[in-house]
């Protein structure tokens, strides 16, 4: 049975998954965090309170979040092609991953930022802080534990999203599990990929929890 396990392919697939999750998390954070900040600032009774803008932004985020990832991936093929020049392959798969995960992270960041004590924001205003200074020096530092744990949740969600990337030739552990476990009835290969993914998620969550705890201990 051991002879059947294709270790080189497993390591290669793990690499592809790590690549998709890593770059996907980075880009989702870079795009989702500003959206999350804007969602908070434009929301009623906040610094830039603006109902139409808030509702428009909120609608876009909701629409993107309501499409199941597997469908989003296929629907985005033309867009992916326009951005990357191709719609096939691991790198191309990052486009739908980010489009799916950025709005998800935006909501997590919004929730974390909304937790910041309005009194502290008001105190900063009273000291003459501009909106930008409040975002940078009050909202983000005060919400840093929540912002960080949102990144971990997004990364874990991306492990699961990236398992579907095989559909557009993205490779990775999920693709491997489907090809061997489902198409060829090689249950052992599937089990190995499941274990690798579990370890991956555990490690990410562990590091995240440790970091969040460290920030929280210091009062954040």
């Amino acid at each position: 049975m051991h002879a059947d396990i294709v270790w080189p392919e497993i390591w290669q697939a793990t690499g592809a998954t790590l690549y998709m999750v890593g770059v996907g998390t980075l880009l989702s954070t870079l795009i989702g965090l500003p959206i999350g900040i804007l969602l908070v600032l434009f929301s009623p009774n906040h610094l830039l309170a603006n109902r139409p803008v808030y509702q428009a932004l909120s609608l876009i985020v909701n629409v993107l979040r309501s499409v199941p990832f597997i469908i989003l991936m296929i629907a985005l093929i033309p867009f992916t092609e326009w951005v990357m020049g191709t719609s096939i392959g691991t790198t191309a798969a990052i486009v739908p991953l980010v489009v799916g995960a950025a709005p998800f992270y935006a909501r997590l960041a919004e929730t974390a930022l909304r937790e910041v004590d309005p009194g502290v924001i008001e105190a900063a205003q009273a000291m003459g802080a501009s909106t930008w200074q409040i975002v940078w020096w009050v909202l983000l530092p005060e919400a840093r534990a929540g912002v960080l744990s949102g990144i971990v949740i997004t990364a874990v969600a991306l492990v699961s999203y990236s398992a579907m990337a095989g559909v557009i030739g993205g490779g990775g552990l999920g693709d491997l599990a489907v090809r061997y476990g489902y198409d060829r009835f090689q249950t052992d290969v599937m089990l190995v990929t499941i274990v690798v993914m579990m370890v991956l998620v555990q490690v990410m969550q562990g590091i995240g929890d440790w970091w969040v705890a460290r920030l929280s201990r210091r009062g954040g």
């Binding site: 009194g119 502290v120 008001e122 105190a123 530092p141 005060e142 840093r144 920030l215 009062g219």
Partner: peptide
């Protein structure tokens, strides 16, 4: 302020 409003972080 009544509740101080210090930066916790």
């Amino acid at each position: 302020f009544q509740h101080f409003h210090l930066l916790q972080s």
